[in-house]
Lab assay of single mutants.
Amino acid sequence: GETKIIYHLDGQETPYLVKLPLPAERVTLADFKGVLQRPSYKFFFKSMDDDFGVVKEEISDDNAKLPCFNGRVVSWLVSA
């Protein structure tokens, strides 16, 4: 499998796309960081919350699996 991750960088209009050679349910924050090489950023991901619906959730645990929608991951990188 392959996972497409779209990421928005510090408010830039056009998002970036990276592809990881892993199925979406196995991709972790560490996998994503390894491709990006951007150490001083906070990582937020499109996520579903039972109370609020669609939210941007910050993930900082490198072992955390990334939230996935239709085989895609959507993220926002914010300068720390």
Results as ranks from 00 to 15, higher is better:
43 F>T: 03
52 F>Q: 15
52 F>S: 15
70 N>K: 12
65 K>D: 00
32 F>D: 03
59 I>K: 03
55 V>N: 11
57 E>H: 11
72 R>I: 15
11 G>K: 08
60 S>F: 10
67 P>Q: 03
45 F>H: 01
7 Y>H: 02
75 S>A: 15
46 K>F: 06
65 K>C: 10
63 N>F: 04
78 V>T: 11
61 D>N: 08
30 A>M: 07
51 D>E: 12
22 L>E: 04
11 G>W: 07
61 D>F: 06
17 L>M: 15
27 V>I: 12
71 G>A: 02
66 L>T: 02
60 S>V: 12
49 D>Y: 09
1 G>F: 14
57 E>Y: 09
31 D>C: 08
1 G>Q: 12
79 S>H: 07
37 Q>V: 11
19 K>C: 12
12 Q>C: 14
47 S>Q: 10
29 L>Q: 00
24 A>H: 06
72 R>E: 15
7 Y>V: 08
69 F>D: 08
61 D>I: 08
45 F>P: 05
6 I>K: 01
6 I>F: 12
41 Y>Q: 08
18 V>Y: 05
18 V>L: 12
32 F>G: 00
42 K>A: 05
78 V>N: 05
3 T>V: 08
64 A>N: 06
26 R>H: 10
21 P>F: 05
26 R>V: 11
33 K>N: 11
25 E>P: 00
48 M>E: 13
79 S>T: 10
75 S>K: 00
43 F>V: 04
10 D>G: 03
33 K>E: 03
60 S>M: 10
67 P>M: 05
13 E>T: 11
67 P>W: 00
22 L>T: 05
67 P>C: 00
28 T>M: 05
48 M>N: 15
15 P>T: 12
39 P>G: 13
25 E>T: 08
59 I>N: 02
33 K>Y: 07
25 E>L: 01
25 E>F: 00
31 D>A: 11
43 F>Y: 12
35 V>G: 01
50 D>H: 10
77 L>M: 08
80 A>M: 11
65 K>N: 10
34 G>V: 08
14 T>N: 12
20 L>D: 03
53 G>I: 06
31 D>N: 04
67 P>A: 01
28 T>R: 08
15 P>C: 08
27 V>H: 04
54 V>K: 04
43 F>C: 08
62 D>A: 01
50 D>C: 09
27 V>S: 03
24 A>K: 10
57 E>T: 15
48 M>W: 13
20 L>W: 07
70 N>C: 07
7 Y>K: 02
63 N>L: 04
62 D>T: 01
61 D>G: 02
19 K>P: 02
46 K>H: 11
6 I>W: 11
30 A>L: 05
42 K>V: 01
13 E>K: 13
2 E>H: 10
66 L>I: 07
21 P>Q: 09
38 R>W: 11
15 P>D: 07
46 K>P: 07
68 C>F: 11
25 E>R: 05
17 L>D: 03
17 L>N: 06
13 E>A: 10
41 Y>T: 06
75 S>T: 06
21 P>L: 02
60 S>Q: 11
25 E>V: 01
31 D>F: 02
69 F>V: 11
35 V>K: 08
6 I>A: 05
5 I>C: 06
7 Y>N: 04
41 Y>W: 08
9 L>C: 06
67 P>N: 03
61 D>A: 05
79 S>L: 03
32 F>Q: 01
9 L>S: 08
33 K>M: 01
41 Y>E: 06
36 L>P: 09
49 D>M: 08
72 R>N: 13
77 L>E: 00
56 K>L: 11
22 L>D: 05
41 Y>F: 13
72 R>Y: 15
73 V>R: 05
78 V>S: 05
62 D>F: 06
50 D>I: 07
64 A>R: 08
3 T>A: 03
56 K>W: 15
79 S>Y: 01
73 V>N: 05
36 L>R: 06
55 V>Q: 14
22 L>C: 09
51 D>V: 11
17 L>E: 15
36 L>E: 02
60 S>W: 11
3 T>Q: 00
13 E>M: 12
60 S>E: 09
51 D>Q: 14
71 G>Y: 04
4 K>N: 15
27 V>W: 00
54 V>P: 13
42 K>N: 07
8 H>F: 15
66 L>S: 02
10 D>I: 01
